[in-house]
Amino acid sequence: MRGGPRLLFIHAFLAAWAIVMVFPFVWMLSTSVKPATEIIQFPPPLLPHVPTFANYMRAFQAAPFGRFLVNSLIVTFVSTMVVLVTSSMAGYVFGKYRFPGRTVIFLILLATAILPLETYMVPLYLTMRDWRWINTYQGLLAPYLMMSFGVFIMRQYFQSTFPDDLMDAARIDGASEWRIFTHVAVPTALSAMAAVGIFAAIQAWTAFIWPLIIASTQNMYTTEVGLAVFQKRYTADYGAITAGAIVSILPVTAIFLFFRRYITQGIAFTGFR
């Protein structure tokens, strides 16, 4: 690469874009600690002169953000755990065994992955209604208990990385197939499972239209739904709304910062979104 002005230009370009990309986050953070008078100051100051946490107090007084967060945590945790169990069980069998119907079942599970929830949310809602799952945690969780992408990742892992010799050795030792799965296969698959788990967690936490349909009272709102409803009701109090936004954005962003290697690798691997 030829250095000098050309390289300088590239860096200036990348840095300028970086500022554009980060600005909304910085602005959100800054607005959330600005006193009301500075929020509507024009031209808008980048940073608050007198930082305050009053916006956060008002947000938590106006809406039960604590409850929203707990709901999101419950949904995200259970969804992630169940997705990990279902993905590793299915992925292991698809990757390591031959049995009648294998290809057909695999194709059925994967082929439906292309259809977003929005195509079938109406009948799924009707099922939830018949089962009296509206406004319950089961209802919030129903579409987030399995993930085609997770099955696919785990199958790839077991097929290409987990050696048959280990399974045969365990069989000679008299281990049952189930025991081989839980005690030999799963412990080697932790990093693949981490990737699946992170995607499942992000998917469950950021879900919007489904919890919007299913949660009918405030005490069942997830953070996303709570924030969306709250920002509509309190349009005038921008400080409090932004404080709520910060509260809702932090957990996922933290997960992302800790595990981003898995995420970018996962995307590069499958083109998942």
Binding site: W27, T31, I249
Partner: peptide, 10 residues
């Protein structure tokens, strides 16, 4: 990766 609702709020 960040959730869309708070981003849209910003």
């Amino acid at each position: 990766v960040a959730p869309t609702v708070p981003e849209a709020v910003a």
